[in-house]
Design a protein around this nucleic acid. Structure first.
Lengths: 192, 192
DNA sequence: ATTATTTTTTGATATAGGTCAAAAAACGAA
DNA sequence: TTCGTTTTTTGACCTATATCAAAAAATAAT
């Protein structure tokens, strides 16, 4: 039985003006689903049928480019874990989401969630905000990738997300920042 | 007096199931605004107060990084021209949008447009689709930038957007693709 | 047409960061 | 604690692409 307050905390990250009645009404549609470190939360096999709001823990989302994996983003509290491909188009996704730590989530069936978006403007606002933030995330990531050199990218990351670094290896971070692992090791060794 | 069919054509790019009544009702909120080649459509001075749906022509959106400009995207028929910063947060934007050719637009006041999004779920769907497409655009652009080398980026672009190239100089394309102009010139000189 | 201006090409050179491979260190399991 | 595995560091070398600068070509202006 999901605590409505827990749902509220998360939805309010995206829409502060969401009324209690709606929270109460939608809470029963969610379930707690927990994951252990290393568990796959979303796979790239088939259409993703469930959305997970991460309420505790850290995740890593990656795609497989042939045999090499490419880390796309790291999830933390409040993030929506799902294949956006599946969510947008209802087609098969390519992302794999894995738990970097113990993870607690509030899970909802994707179709039910889409229904909520259509039915309740307040939930639509939540969804809009999520997509807007995603837009800004990728735009920003592009700008960082194309304007900053390897060392600057690393420092920018550390200044913003050092807490995520605690849960990942150098190799994964290097892959995320698009820096060769050996190069990143050398950058990290430098003082200042 | 905007033709409702012209508005319909554009909105239907984003939501095919939009009913005629709603089109009729919203058409009067739009105005034709045309631009000549070189005109600034959206500036980075102050909060952007108008949204433009591009109905004909091509545009270039760039930001100023100190003194050097950085091309972010090219607009074509159907695209929404606005500062997304202003649209999302109501804060001042940093994008400058300029007409590469003669441009015809359907313009609407930003606040009015935001009102429509809140009021009509069908318009909310239009907006959601626009942001989703933007999300995918930037994600894709990031992946291209970080996974493909200069020549591959150029070829990928040519295979997809050669028609836009007709309206821009080599320098602007180089800047867009994050390739030095001299390098791009050499790539272009190669056969196949 | 002729000149001026902008854009593109070409050549020579420099460098950030990738690649390969081995050593060292850290981590985990028995 | 010890052995095996994974991760990180270090060294030598290489390559894609940037940079600088001048020539050539294209475009616009008088």
């Amino acid at each position: 039985m999901v605590e409505s307050n827990e749902l509220k905390d998360i939805l309010c990250l995206y829409n502060r003006h969401i009324e209690q009645g709606l929270i109460e009404k939608t809470t029963p549609l969610f379930n707690y689903v927990d994951f252990k470190k290393g568990d796959i939360i979303v796979s790239n096999k088939g259409i993703c049928k469930t959305c997970f709001f991460l309420s505790a823990g850290f995740t890593r989302t990656y795609s497989l480019d042939g045999t090499t994996e490419k880390t796309l983003w790291f999830g933390e509290k409040g993030d929506l874990l799902t294949s956006f491909q599946s969510l947008y188009n209802g087609t098969q996704g390519y992302e794999i989401i894995v738990a970097l730590t113990e993870c607690k989530t509030l899970a909802i069936d994707m179709q039910v969630f889409k229904g909520l978006i259509k039915t309740y403007p307040e939930i639509a606002e939540v969804y809009i905000k999520i997509v807007e933030l995603g837009y800004l995330y990728w735009e920003r990531r592009f700008l960082i990738q194309s304007r900053l050199n390897a060392e600057e990218r690393y420092r920018e990351w550390m200044s913003r997300a050092a807490h995520v670094s605690l849960h990942i290896s150098l190799g994964v971070l290097a892959e995320y920042l698009n820096i060769d692992q050996a190069t990143l090791s050398r950058i990290r060794a430098k003082k200042t």
